[in-house]
Design a protein around this nucleic acid. Structure first.
Lengths: 186, 186
DNA sequence: TGCACAAAAGCAAATAATTTGCGTTAGTCG
DNA sequence: CGACTAACGCAAATTATTTGCTTTTGTGCA
């Protein structure tokens, strides 16, 4: 599946991929997840079903691919104030996005794919954003948790709760961050 | 789907369910996940495909149901010594099971099901076991983290790493527990 | 015990999705 | 400009899914 990673921009392959991705997004916005089919996606994208089967294999892989693409961040985490404030703001937005209906669905699509590419992308995108925040803190001299600490004790609990249908309280994210920050002192 | 929850024991419904579950386990042990099909499962279980379609809907739901059933604990966490030692031992066994090939697959099957029953079971089973451990600690007067603390800072990071293909180092579980225990002092 | 009822299974035809071989097209590189 | 190749379209063959109808099986009641 090398072509899925680096289709030459502007080539036919890239156009088909864009059309199919767009078709999936449109259909997913309209219909229930359970009656989305490849023939349907193909029709809306003006390609043949066999093109999709050959490129993505099956519906799960296609949905995972689309979900991963949607999770790619468009910009760096916005600058609010202190590094901690930037972190709080970004994580809160991240949690909201993942906890929404479409967010949950994207997570599930990504996790249920056999091919690990999408899951890896999803993790990398998130880590990149965190790394930017960490770098900012370092630059300004603020004490800040490292990547592993953030993954294990902020991101993981949030994603776990979303996946396993627990509720995320109002201040849940903020409290997680507070705990991690507190540990920096001790 | 009320029949899936409480089929009268010994009835025909229960026998079919057992046969189908067994068939799925057998097939999953032999074959690659991607070429398991409902007709195949039906054949091995000596039922017609339509029976499976009518009862479970599709392959994903069936696999999620089987996975949830496999995760039901057969016994309480074994008694090793102190409550902390019991916890370490149980979590380590839990992590190993989930990190194995079949464990990962079960997790994914459960998470990709649309119906939330299996995901709920999976969480409940785990929480039950933790609750037993917490009760033991309380009885013996040992300081011990509460359920939420264990879920957020021990279980979540483990499951997250498994789902997102990170590696779990040799002492990773033990260190997570050590950190949580340490917090009880401060 | 035996009869009536309901739930779930079987069967088979109809529909829909997936796979595959082969010819065609579009982009790439010399 | 003219091969060359990767990816697409088309259509036939296969396989999976759905569905209407019939039959079986277990349950409750006379």
């Amino acid at each position: 599946m090398s072509h899925r990673e680096n289709p030459r921009p502007g080539g036919r392959s890239a156009r088909v991929q864009a059309a199919v991705h767009q078709s999936v997004r449109d259909i997913l916005a309209t219909m229930d997840r359970t009656d989305v089919t490849i023939p349907l996606i193909a029709q809306r994208a003006n390609v043949t079903p066999s093109t999709i089967y050959r490129r993505w294999g099956d519906l799960q892989e296609l949905l995972a691919d689309v979900a991963a693409a949607r999770l790619r961040p468009e910009s760096e985490p916005p600058r609010i104030g202190t590094a901690r404030e930037d972190l709080e703001s970004w994580i809160e937005q991240y949690a909201d996005e993942m906890a929404s209906g479409v967010g949950r669905q994207m997570l599930r699509d990504i996790l249920s794919s056999v091919d690990g590419t999408s899951v890896e992308k999803c993790r990398c995108y998130m880590q990149q954003q965190l790394t930017v925040l960490i770098a900012r803190a370092e630059k300004s001299g603020e004490p800040f948790p490292d990547l592993e600490e953030l993954m294990d004790h902020v991101i993981s609990p949030i994603i776990y709760r979303i996946l396993f249908d627990c509720t995320l309280g109002e201040d849940y994210v903020r409290e997680l961050i507070a705990k991690v920050m507190q540990k920096l002192q001790g």
